[in-house]
């Protein structure tokens, strides 16, 4: 069953798009990641222009983040103060990201930039996770718990110290807002929510308890993606609402099943699977970059004459 996407200006198979978003939703529910890093490349692969794929992913990520936020909110597992500080940076990062995105598009380097970024980002995170999970599989001995009275880090000397009661941390707002800005930037340019970047950063660098991290990161992703949606819509008019609706339907149903399966697997096995998947996606982009293309030429249309 074909449906015509009014902004992407091409017909797509509804069932194919729904199946893709179900599968990505399943993965995102299982691992607790947004899934943007899988969905955006898939959309590009079926012929949706990169700009439309990235822009239409934003509302879908926001929708799935909102579902999560509501659940964590009921459990009071969101640190809104921490979220707000991240957001100050996040909205700024998104604005810079959308502007950067548009200039890359004009210069014809958007696809290459996205490919290189995916390779670096997914490759690094996937590689680290793989090493970590293989290592912990090898030595079964319980690891020493991370100490909560940390050594001083370089950014502990920054001014503007704030106390985040729910996260039980005392940190400067500057590196936090900086982290938020980076996530917002990545989200706007790459069409990813950034959960897979934000969660490890908050856990390992800022030592926020895991219980609070996921809810807070979902809150930050929600607001950043909503801002991204509006900015892509106003600067590019590239948000395809029909495509976004399809993605939301598939994504929200798929993630429910993913969550159920995810709960049955051990954390270690989950991390190993996620690591492998990140590396596969990174590998796919790397192959596109380094293997000589059959068709070195490509077309892009600019303004109507």
């Amino acid at each position: 069953m074909q449906i015509y996407l009014p902004i992407a200006e091409l017909p797509v198979d509804v069932l194919l798009v729904l199946a893709m978003s179900l599968a990505v939703g399943f993965v995102s529910g299982m691992f607790g990641v947004g899934g943007g890093f899988l969905m955006t490349p898939l959309l590009i692969f079926i012929g949706v222009p990169t700009a439309v794929a990235v822009a239409s992913e934003a509302p879908q990520i926001a929708a799935s983040a909102f579902t999560g936020v509501l659940a964590y909110w009921r459990r009071r597992a969101i640190d809104f103060k921490l979220g707000a500080v991240l957001l100050v940076g996040g909205v700024f990062g998104s604005a810079v990201g959308v502007a950067f995105f548009n200039s890359l598009r004009a210069a014809g380097q958007l696809d290459a930039f996205i490919a290189v970024s995916y390779v670096l980002m997914l490759g690094t995170i996937g590689g680290l996770m793989l090493v970590e999970s293989v290592r912990s599989n090898l030595d079964r001995a319980p690891k020493p718990r991370p100490r909560r009275t940390p050594t001083r880090r370089f950014f502990d000397r920054f001014p503007l110290k704030l106390r985040f009661r729910r996260s039980m941390i005392h940190a400067s707002a500057i590196p936090l807002a900086g982290l938020g800005a980076f996530i917002g930037f990545a989200g706007a340019v790459l069409g990813v929510g950034g959960g897979f970047l934000l969660v490890p950063a908050l856990v390992y660098v800022f030592r926020v308890p895991t219980a609070v991290v996921v809810g807070t990161s979902l809150f930050q992703i929600l607001v950043t993606m909503l801002a991204s949606t509006v900015m892509h819509a106003t600067t590019n008019a590239s948000v395809d609402i029909v495509l976004a609706i399809l993605l939301m339907i598939g994504g929200s149903i798929g993630s429910q099943f993913g969550v159920r399966v995810g709960q049955k697997l051990s954390g270690q096995r989950l991390r190993l699977l996620l690591a492998v998947m990140l590396l596969v996606v990174a590998g796919r982009f790397l192959a596109d970059l380094v293997i000589e293309p059959d068709e070195p030429f490509s077309i892009s249309q600019t303004e109507r004459a």
Binding site: A65, F66, A233
Partner: peptide, 17 residues
């Protein structure tokens, strides 16, 4: 249009929950 997309995202996220 952008705000409509935002409203839609919130609505569908809420519906799913």
């Amino acid at each position: 249009y952008g705000l409509a997309a935002v409203a839609l995202a919130l609505l569908s996220g809420w519906l799913a929950s």
